[in-house]
Amino acid sequence: MIEIARLQKSYGDRPILDGVSLEVPQGTVCGVLGPSGSGKSTLLRCVNFLEPFEGGEIRIAGESVGYDHRDGRRIPKPRQVVNRMRSECCMVFQQFNLFSHMTALENVAIAPYKIKGMSRRAAREQAVALLDKVGLGPRKDAYPAYLSGGEQQRVAIARALAMSPKVLLLDEVTSALDPERAAEVLDVIAALAADGMTMMMVTHQMHFAREVCRNIVFMDGGRIVEEGGPEMLAAPATDRLRSFLRHLRLA
């Protein structure tokens, strides 16, 4: 579903992603681990094309992200195509970023209404159903300021699901939450994984990653240092991953 090949990305002349290649088969979850600054968020932002990149290629469901490749040249895609592809591959952020002037329901309904041309009624009905699904039916009319972090993050997930994306990108979605609130959100993600949603997930929750991820990649310095199935966390092959995991356990 997601294919990333030799991805190159730099800020100024500082390389941030240096030849990242990975594949996420349809219906599976790929966990992305790595120390701070290793380029995990940047990788997800490139897949969502919130950031342009200089080299390599990303494909979602076979369609190239951001650029067309013709005669060995890269041609930026038209804006409408970029926007459409973004709506098929939604991102959920560490800081939730709910629209603060809208209720939970409006947050979930606004994108299908505004950009998919769904009727107001259908958008609201879908939003109610999605909020029920993440366990927030009774809180649908609350503004984000009146929701707990865990509730806000679940609304944010519902907001992304409202676009019926092919892929969900989750960037440390539980890092700003206490363990109980985090568990609420992780339950929602586990349910999505069971439903066969294709996801790429940056996380520091090792137990959770081991349970839901088909593949895990460990990044450092803009490269994938080690990748494999969940068992790799129990028996890391590289010293780098071993020391990373040791520090994580101590923390």
């Binding site: 919130l50 926007n83 939604c90 991102m91 952020f93 970023n97 709910l98 629209f99």
Partner: peptide, 18 residues
């Protein structure tokens, strides 16, 4: 208005002006 608000909208596929 925090820049993240704009980014969240863009990441959902909102066109710039919308």
């Amino acid at each position: 208005v925090p820049r993240e608000q704009f980014q969240a909208a863009r990441s959902l596929g909102f066109p710039f002006t919308t």
